[in-house]
Nucleic acid binder design. Structure first.
Length: 571
RNA sequence: CGGGAUGUAGCGCAGCUUGGUAGCGCACCUCGCUUGGGACGAGGGGGUCGCAGGUUCAAAUCCUGUCAUCCCGACCA
């Protein structure tokens, strides 16, 4: 490709409205253009990267026995009503009406269509298992799209769905997909960590997320991991062993005391001169319009995803102060679990509270707390402790009891064991060996293709621009004649260009009339893995060879430069 | 949906306080000159100042409304 013909416009400055480095660089280097919030055009350079990622995905999925198909992007509401997700999916599902006033939607995911399609096509256990996938645009009307391609509304996803007769066979395929994913991302030049995760709106019980670990804020997930064993989990799912499990407030009898205007754990801890872990904290929520009171040890915080799961609820938000008065009969800051009407308010206790004794909590009365409380002493014994706490740094691995580390991660893939979550409501059945009708046992497996591109930029860049891994770079080599009007330089540059093309190496010839500095800046910004500069040294028969990843320049003959390209690109 | 900010040429911005009919840099076009890290000179094209009302002889500027975008939070594959 001749640079003068390439449909690209690099910018001298970073865009004003971008925050994440991948967002800034992809726009500045001319890979993407924003059309609307969270909706982007992939320019030719980006399209080439996406094609390469997609091809790696295809090769590995096919090698693992999956088959590619392509399903509709616009879907009728009817099919979503069958799975009960027309209601449950919420506002992320963009709904539209067609000219006949029929409800339709832009598909955020394809469980419904694939389940129906498979159930119409496969009737017998003899045709199972099967794994089907597609690579396609998805639309999710996110509340707050951000970070460019990392959280767009429209994005490209590979989604695969597998169908099985037994849980064991699903687990086998789940393992296969896990290994396939690791390989796919490795081939894209990205190391990933498979972490345990919450399964969210897609549903199912077991799931793992494939995270690219980064140290920037754009990794929207906190990942906890153990260096001694292979435990790792998204913070919304992580569990831990607390450094201090038994806490004692030291009060020798239970009594109500005055705590004037002491509303926070911090203030109360100072006022009574006790550790926050001796205070029982009350956090009030509204879950699916119903009041919930969660009690947790004072030094811990609620993980709302876990709370949501414990309640089997869809939506959750903190209570407003008026709601606290109304439902809990207590002023905010002085809430306790006693006097709560358990027929009206769901009461939950985090496991961290189990080891507390002689502890403190709100007295359900303004400016008063109760000290010296013990489980079972003054309240019914049948308290059911559940895990609804967020893990904190410094806590210990649940498997091997070593300190847990925390890092940020960009989720580029996920795998779920769905079970019969879709096949049952949608009555997607096959006939088993005994002639019985049974719902399929399903798995699903996603890869964010466009997000993977952004994650690679997020991971591999420097002050000058992008540093593409060679496997997904838009082009492999950029040839820069320092002065295109110098006949000797022009001739050699053209020869190298022709030879590399003939070898099947993807190459750009920067034939623009601009000065060398402009071409060098663009080469670094766009991030070609290899740059060959044809300049003055051509009089000695030498060109300059530079790899973007280390920026070291060596001088070679044109033929040796070509050989070096082959060497680097082939291994 | 709450908090904060911003909308002026393709991109980055000034002008707004104090109203007088729009400007700078980059990019683009022409000519000259230049060619190893985003040169220089001269000339040129491009904007209903987000949109809609209002005040005024006169609005980018003041007022009201509205839309969009960005950041933080909430939310979410």
């Amino acid at each position: 490709m001749k640079m003068s013909k390439l449909f690209v416009q690099t910018l001298r400055e970073f865009p004003n409205d971008a925050e994440a480095m991948s967002h800034k660089l992809l726009i500045r280097a001319g890979f993407i253009k924003k059309l609307a919030n969270g909706i982007y055009t992939y320019m030719p350079l980006a399209q080439r990267v996406l094609t390469k990622i997609s091809n790696i995905v295809r090769q590995e999925m096919n090698a693992s026995g999956a088959q590619e198909l392509l399903m509709p992007f616009v879907q009728p509401a009817e099919i979503w009503q069958k799975s009960n997700r027309w209601q449950a999916y919420g506002k992320e599902l963009l709904r539209v009406k067609d000219r006949h006033d029929i409800d339709m939607c832009l598909s955020p995911t394809h469980e419904e269509v694939i389940t129906q399609t498979v159930s119409e096509t496969i009737n017998s256990y003899k045709q199972l298992p099967i794994n089907l996938y597609q690579i396609q645009t998805k639309f999710r009307d996110e509340i707050r799209p951000r970070f460019g391609l990392l959280r767009g509304r429209e994005f490209i996803m590979k989604d695969a769905y597998s169908f099985h007769t037994t849980q064991e066979d699903l687990e086998r395929e789940y393992e296969v997909m896990g290994k396939t994913y690791t390989r796919i991302f490795q081939r894209c030049g990205l190391e990933t960590k498979a972490v345990q995760s919450d399964s969210g709106a897609i549903g199912g019980k077991v799931s793992h997320e494939y995270m690219v670990l980064v140290d920037t804020m754009v990794g929207e997930n906190n990942v906890f991991y153990c260096e001694s064993c292979d435990y790792s989990a998204n913070s919304n799912h992580a569990i831990s062993i607390l450094p201090i499990q038994q806490t004692d407030g030291g009060f020798d009898k239970e009594e109500t005391i005055d705590t004037p205007n002491i509303k926070t754990i911090e203030d109360l801890s100072k006022f009574l001169n006790i550790n926050p872990n001796c205070i029982l904290k009350a956090v009030a929520y509204i879950a699916d319009s119903k009041p919930v009171l969660a009690m947790i040890r004072g030094d811990k915080d609620i993980e709302e995803t876990k709370l949501l799961n414990a309640l089997n609820a869809l939506e959750i938000r903190p209570m407003e102060n008026e709601e606290i008065e109304k439902y809990l009969n207590a002023p905010a800051g002085f809430i306790g679990y006693r006097n709560v009407d358990k027929t009206k308010v769901t009461l939950l206790f985090d496991e961290s509270a189990k080891g507390m004794k002689n502890f403190v909590m709100g007295a359900n009365e303004k400016d008063k707390h109760i000290v010296g409380i013990n489980w079972g002493a003054n309240f019914e014994d049948d308290i059911n402790f559940v895990d609804i706490a967020i893990v904190k740094e410094g806590e210990f691995c649940p498997i091997c009891n070593k300190p847990l580390k925390i890092t940020r991660g960009i989720e580029v893939g996920n795998i779920f064991q769905l079970g019969t979550k879709y096949s049952e409501p949608m009555k997607a059945l096959y006939t088993d060996e005994q002639g019985q009708l049974k719902p399929y046992i399903m798995g699903c497996y996603g890869i964010g293709v466009s997000r993977t591109m952004a994650a690679a930029v997020e991971k591999y860049h420097d002050d000058f621009g992008i540093i593409w891994p060679k496997e997904i770079a838009p082009y492999h080599v950029d040839i820069v004649p320092v002065n295109i009007e110098d006949e000797a330089q022009k001739k050699v540059a053209n020869e190298i260009y022709e030879k590399l093309n003939a070898l099947g190496i993807e190459v750009v010839l920067d034939d623009r009339l601009d000065r060398a500095g402009v071409k060098f800046k663009d080469a670094d910004l766009i991030g070609f893995p290899i740059r060959i500069t044809v300049g003055k040294t051509i009089n000695e028969g030498l060109v300059e060879f530079k790899q973007r990843k280390d920026n070291d320049i060596i001088k070679l003959t044109p033929d040796d430069a070509i050989k070096k390209c082959q060497e680097i690109l082939l291994n």
